[in-house]
Design a protein around this nucleic acid. Structure first.
Length: 425
RNA sequence: GGAAGGGUGGCAGAGCGGCUGAAUGCACCGGUCUUGAAAACCGGCGAAGGUAACACUUCCGUGGGUUCAAAUCCCACCCCUUCCGCCA
């Protein structure tokens, strides 16, 4: 959520940062224009209500004093009936107006950080660097590699659950588990993260805190008969671990890593990546989450991204780092780097990690604040990034490790987790 | 699912119609004392809006109601704890 004070003080500057996302900030009936109008109305009604509340409180106190002194208070009581009715009416109007203002605010995305490049679509994302040497020989798609080896079963996934579900067997199942272990161990032992294990079902409030709700309910799996949802990413429960808390500044930065399954309806991506396991309704991911100060947010984003890169490097998977342009940065983020891994069958790089700084946006929404010694509470800055998406990582290993005899070389760092297995045959 | 108890400031915990934004203790901050520390003593110490600063307003799980006045009374809901049932 954007800051109300800043919204009033810097309406035009904020609007400009939002316009870079392609949002209409000129139209008075658009969200930006409506927010302004609703704020004015909300504040008017609130100050009217408050003035009358003050009167009510003053006279009520007087009545109490008179009564306890045995004096007559009937004159005051006579007028207060009406005053009280008016207070109630104004209170509920003010409440409604504030709720309306809030509802609009909740649907306004995070203004972009000034360093984010302009752009009209994902085609304008900026490549920052590449690592590793992509193989350019012909490699079959992972679904063929996996089917030939008998370790990926897409038909079984479809039978059990539908499209975009896959069953892993044998070496693939173990590889999935090995990747999870390797990633978590690396982040805990080498990067200093504290591991957490969290629920994969959360309530509406939690989902709202990180920004998935109210705007993106269609992307989520909702539980029948309950106001609860399957998480689309560990970001949601892990960040919200601290919802409505005031933290001591000394404990920042907080760095958590977590494995969770992730569930996405992929409502808007019909027809994209329908084959294989690039885009699944359920997938595994190890996530990195930082809670830090606003001053540190941007430099911590570099650190976090580096931790995700370290995994790719250890697995010796070629990748590139891109910075998302204004049109492509997600709703809650102020700045985002994507890591894209080389997929030889497609001869292109595909997203395998997304690392974002959210500034105070989520901290404000989720009520996560911190206090410097003697200072006032202020929202924490949050960051998160995949470290990494496990299913896509498995795909990359199958394709990059594929050999012309049909076998797949297992990256060295994973072999201890694979019972010493060097290749999948 | 059934029964009972309970949700109050960073924590613990009183209050159960007006003098209560809230006793008390702990924690924390400042001071006195001390070579220093501890102890003791004195003072301060919730959040949000609002203001130049005050004033003022709101907040005692959430929502509604009664009343001139609600943390306190009434209704509904949510959550937690314990016991029983069920169960990995």
């Amino acid at each position: 959520m954007i800051d109300r004070q800043e919204f009033r003080r810097s309406f035009d500057e904020m609007g400009a940062a939002l316009a870079r996302r392609g949002i209409d900030t000129i139209d008075p009936d658009g969200p930006w224009g409506r927010a302004r109008a609703l704020d004015v109305r909300q504040r008017e009604l609130k100050s009217q209500a408050e003035a009358l509340q003050a009167e009510r409180n003053r006279v009520s106190k007087l009545i109490g004093q008179k009564k306890s002194n045995g004096e007559d208070a009937s004159a005051e009581l006579a007028v207060m009936g009406e005053v009280s009715r008016q207070v109630k009416a104004l209170e509920s109007q003010a409440k409604e107006a504030e709720a309306a203002f809030n509802a609009v605010l909740m649907e306004i995305p995070n203004p972009l950080h000034e360093s984010v490049p302009n752009g009209a679509s994902e085609d304008d994302n900026v490549e920052l660097r590449r690592w590793g040497v992509p193989r350019e020989d012909e490699v079959p798609p992972h679904w063929d590699i996996g089917a030939d080896l008998g370790i990926l079963d897409f038909e079984a996934g479809a039978t059990l659950a539908g499209s975009r579900f896959t069953v892993l067997k044998g070496a693939a199942a173990r590889l999935e588990r090995a990747l999870m272990q390797f990633m978590l161990n690396t982040h805990v032992d080498e990067h200093g993260y504290e591991e957490v294990w969290v629920p994969a079902i959360v309530n509406r409030k939690t989902m709202t805190g990180t920004g998935q709700l109210p705007k993106f309910e269609d992307d989520l799996y909702k539980l029948e008969g309950e106001d609860a949802f399957l998480i689309p990413t560990a970001e949601v429960p892990v960040t919200n671990l601290y919802q409505d808390q005031i933290l001591n500044a000394e404990i920042l930065p907080i760095r958590h890593c977590a494995y969770t399954p992730c569930f996405r309806r992929e409502a808007g991506s019909a027809g994209r990546d329908v084959r294989g396991m690039i885009r699944q309704h359920q997938f595994d991911k190890v996530e990195l989450v930082h809670l830090t100060t606003t001053e540190r947010a941007l430099s911590d984003l570099e650190t976090l991204t580096g931790h995700a890169e370290a995994i790719l490097q250890a697995l010796k998977l070629p990748y590139r780092l891109i910075e998302l342009c204004g049109a492509d940065v997600g709703f809650s983020a102020q700045k985002t780097y994507d890591l894209e891994v080389w997929l030889p069958s497609q001869q292109c790089y595909r997203e395998i990690s997304s690392c974002s700084s959210f500034g105070q946006f989520q901290g404000r929404r989720a009520g996560i604040r911190y206090r410097e010694e003697g200072g006032k509470p202020q929202p924490v800055a949050t960051l998160n990034g995949s470290g990494l998406a496990i299913g896509r990582c498995l795909v990359a290993i199958l394709e990059n490790g594929w050999q012309s005899d049909g076998s797949v070389m297992i990256p060295e760092v994973l072999r201890p987790y694979m019972g010493g297995m060097q290749q999948i045959v």
